[in-house]
Design a protein around this nucleic acid. Structure first.
Lengths: 229, 229
DNA sequence: GTCTATAGTTCGATAGAC
DNA sequence: GTCTATCGAACTATAGAC
């Protein structure tokens, strides 16, 4: 019958896709972990291949070279994260009444922290890549940041201005940049807050940290607004 | 005479020290630039040697290996910066009246930004190393951060508590971590703020940026204080 | 699509002359 | 203290069989 025919010929299109996707995804997962641990320059294609359980040449077949692989790693999660951010922002702005600043700030950070920390079979270390990435002055990273993060950044800056009509555009941009910096301390998870607080401040406790960050960031933005006029 | 004798034998101790210092310093300056541009893993001893105008082997003679060289680069500027930070903080706390929070925050950031950006014959790119360094989870960097930055960090956290007696110790640590994150956006100089603001927010304009940061950070800290009780 | 084998480069570090 | 020369390891990427 048809099924048997397909079986002897190998596999059908769906099965084929699943298998292919699983290999490529395994590579992306492994790459995510290794880039997170060692940065772009420090990561090696050998280690990525080993961790993914594939031959090194397969990475080149799927992703061409190291740089393109990195772009794929960035693109995969950035797409998920920024789509979710946009949805949350849409929901807040659809309302005729201006939303609370706290809600906007939470929409800015929650998708990043949640997807950045816990996705991927590998263990989810995309957030560390983002830290590396957000502060890089490397041409490759700047280009990627512009492509994947500037559009949503402008939307959040607009949202700051909408909630704080007195806030100048320039101050809104400063506010955005500084807030991203705050978020990075959440993503890095160096364990430093634990050390400095003798165990009181746990940077792996997402909910507590997010709560503190929202308070701090909103306070900072409001202070810029208050000082502006 | 004595001088002639010294000359034939080579040089006196002072001359010798100057020459040695200039070679070693040239290596440190070059290393600072290359590490700033490429990170630890991405930097090569060859490029550092070329930029310093010395043989590659001389780096190993003075600094043993790449890791020790990096430590020397970190240690040199961190010493200068944190000594200055401590002095400013001492001056503020010597006063019987509690200092203004703004003054403390400025003491936290000004030495870093000023020495980080403009020191070194090479062009002063230590601040970019700090960005890299502050968010690293690499064991080497964590150890260095603990040695060079935790002591002064505790002093600033104490100062936050002194100015805001209602602030819990844990919230003071959060406040410190977040504020360092804000400072990192100042150090990175990716040019992103320029792009997002169409030229209005120049991240190489130190004084304007410092002013905005102080406002934002103080607002954040005060918000944590207000929310705490 | 996936593998093995390897070409070709670059790296950190050392040996040894001066 | 500083150099030249080089070793041995690790890297990215490709060639070619299956």
């Amino acid at each position: 019958m048809g099924q048997a025919a397909l079986k002897t010929s190998g596999e059908n299109a769906a099965e084929r896709h699943v298998r292919l996707a699983s290999r490529a995804d395994a590579i992306l997962d492994a790459a995510e972990q290794v880039f997170a641990t060692s940065g772009f320059a420090g990561a090696s294609m050998r280690e990525i291949a080993n961790r993914a359980g594939v031959a090194q040449a397969l990475i080149h077949y799927h992703f061409n070279n190291k740089e393109k692989l990195f772009e794929a790693v960035i693109g995969r999660r950035s797409g998920e994260i920024n789509t979710r951010r946009g949805e949350l922002l849409d929901a807040l702005l659809d309302n005729p009444a201006p939303p609370r600043l706290e809600k906007i700030v939470e929409a800015l950070f929650r998708p990043t922290i949640e997807k950045g920390h816990s996705l991927a079979k590998g263990g989810g270390s995309f957030s560390r890549i983002l830290v590396w990435f957000a502060n890089s002055s490397d041409e490759r990273d700047l280009k990627l940041a512009e492509t994947y993060y500037d559009p949503i950044a402008r939307r959040f800056i607009d949202a700051f201005c909408r909630v704080h009509p007195q806030l100048s555009r320039a101050d809104a941009v400063w506010a955005y940049m500084f807030s991203i910096g705050v978020g990075m301390t959440m993503m890095a998870r160096t364990g430093r807050s634990m050390r400095l607080s003798k165990g009181e401040c746990d940077d792996s406790d997402i909910e507590t940290m997010l709560e503190k960050i929202v308070i701090y960031v909103c306070g900072g933005i409001r202070a810029l607004d208050a000082a502006g006029s």
